[in-house]
Design a protein around this nucleic acid. Structure first.
Lengths: 307, 307
DNA sequence: AAAGTGTTTAAACAGGGGGTATAAAATATG
DNA sequence: CATATTTTATACCCCCTGTTTAAACACTTT
């Protein structure tokens, strides 16, 4: 993306954090970022679209950090989840995302509203899938409810905590407190066998999300991380271990952070992984292949849009 | 209050419900309620103040209904609490209060924001005091946290429930589900002995609320209702029972719904209550006297403001 | 019934916002 | 150097909130 455009996004975000979305006029943004009105409307078709661009960049950042916390760790480890939530809450507060969400819901802009709704549902879906990691498939019927309630608990606890003590240091303890409640809540609701929202609703709310970019990245991590974790178990040779780590690193780096990933190199790496002497990862590599294909397909579609 | 003004408030609320606060222009309100701009600005100094007027009337209504549900019932009965919450949630949805709250928080109007914050804290305080009724003084240290979390749980459950099924019929089951979780939550958090927010915070957040009108009315009910409930126990004579009910009814009616309550009549009624042969209600009547005095004092202050 | 009082109306006005169009200036590309 | 593209500055449109003003209206007092 254009450097200058990125600069405008940054400056505008700064203004939105300080003054709010509505209270910041386009003129303010022009003055603060030192561009002209013409350029602004060349980059963004409206103020709303600028806001969406801000969301997208901050979300990308958050997603990367969130997934990096999982590398080499067990997805069922609740301490990792706590770290992830904590990181997310700090990011939310720093970027005033919640306030901006709420502000947006009161605009007339249907697209913007739709995007926010989508974002929140995606966040809910992430939490749901993490809950399955942590609390197991057997609790699945209750975990959508738990995700909904946990988000409510977190949000309200943080909100009033902010009113009580205006420091950011306490976020950690609020998260720990809320997660403690969550653990008992899951137990309790499974015991009582009460369900308010069946998890199938998520697919109704987010149809065709499998093809979405962010979703693909999350699924990618979900497969690659366990593969990483079981390398030491299957290969005693230090060199072999390093080799497979390098291969996975390479694929991840190429997919995540390269504008134009080199398809053949990735395929070659996948082939090498497949030929491992321990003959493991058959299922994983199949899924990985699917994801990477979907990823390239999506990349092509994006290019078509640009021309 | 002026009939015409009340009419404008009603029509404007209707528009706000349909289109939202920001999306409704003052011109829309003028057209829809059939008044001119001059009149509008005679009634309300701004659109924000009109919104506050809307809040005040709907809150008054809600408070009345909420307290009426308690008459003759035990405050510790959780079924009554469920009915109260249900009623509140239906009112919230019908009047789109939550959406309007959120919308307002994104305006620049400091007064409006302040008022909303005050309203939410008052609602939290009400819930906290009801929790003490229900779960007992012994759980008090944890009940502010529980009130905060319960509000979060309620709000999120309702929000997603609305997304799933667009009907209002389900509100009842969502409330029941949420209250079930609440009961276990209180148990659990008391057992674990974990506290996030000490209840004293409420007094810091809502200083001098004892003098506030709404608060006085709530405290009034809190004292009168138990008095009502113990009439049959202390007086066997049907006539005596009816007499004391009538006296309490009279005071309540005079305080609640009369523009200019007749002070001497109320004092006389209080005196008669005090002379009851069973010689009960000493403490209650003392408190009642305090409240009524505060009430009249506030009434005088309001009159001074008007002149 | 007439005069005087306050209330309501209609209309014009100011100031500011988002978004569009266009001609001139600056910058990049061959 | 010449051409093509991007960027700028500015004027313009329409809509919004909030103020002001003079005229029309209603209602009380005499």
């Amino acid at each position: 993306m254009n450097d200058r455009k990125q600069h405008v996004i940054k400056k505008a975000h700064q203004l939105f954090i300080e003054k709010g979305f509505q209270a910041t006029s386009i003129q303010d943004i022009l003055d603060f970022s030192g561009i002209s009105k013409g350029t602004f409307y060349k980059y963004f078709s409206s103020k709303s679209e600028l806001l969406i661009a801000i969301y997208k960049t901050t979300f990308k950042q958050l997603q990367k950090e969130r997934n990096d916390l999982l590398i080499g760790k067990s997805p069922s480890d609740i301490e990792i989840f706590i770290k992830q939530v904590e990181m997310q809450m700090i990011s939310n507060r720093k970027n005033k995302l919640i306030a901006l969400y709420e502000e947006v819901m009161s605009t007339n802009d249907a697209d913007l509203k739709h995007y926010i709704r989508f974002t929140r549902l995606r966040s809910l879906r992430w939490m749901f899938s993490r809950f399955i990691d942590i609390f197991g498939e057997k609790n699945k019927p209750y975990l959508l409810d738990c995700a909904i309630m946990f988000q409510g608990i977190m949000q309200h606890n943080l909100q009033y905590n902010r009113l009580a003590t205006d420091s950011n240091e306490k976020i950690s303890s609020v998260v720990r407190y809320s997660v403690s409640r969550l653990v008992k809540l899951v137990e309790e609701v499974a015991e009582a066998d009460e369900q308010l929202h069946p998890p199938e609703l998520l697919e109704k709310w987010l149809p065709g999300l499998q093809k979405n970019n962010h979703e693909l990245i999350d699924r990618f991590y979900k497969i690659v991380n366990p593969m990483r974790n079981c390398i030491p178990k299957h290969f005693q040779d230090k060199n072999a271990q390093e080799k497979y780590h390098e291969l996975l690193d390479f694929i991840q780096e190429e997919i995540m952070h390269t504008r134009a990933p080199r398809k053949f190199l990735i395929e070659s790496a996948l082939q090498t992984l497949q030929n491992n002497p321990a003959d493991i990862w058959k299922k994983e590599l199949l899924q990985l292949n699917q994801i990477i294909n979907a990823f390239f397909q999506q990349l092509e579609e994006n290019e078509e849009e640009e021309h």
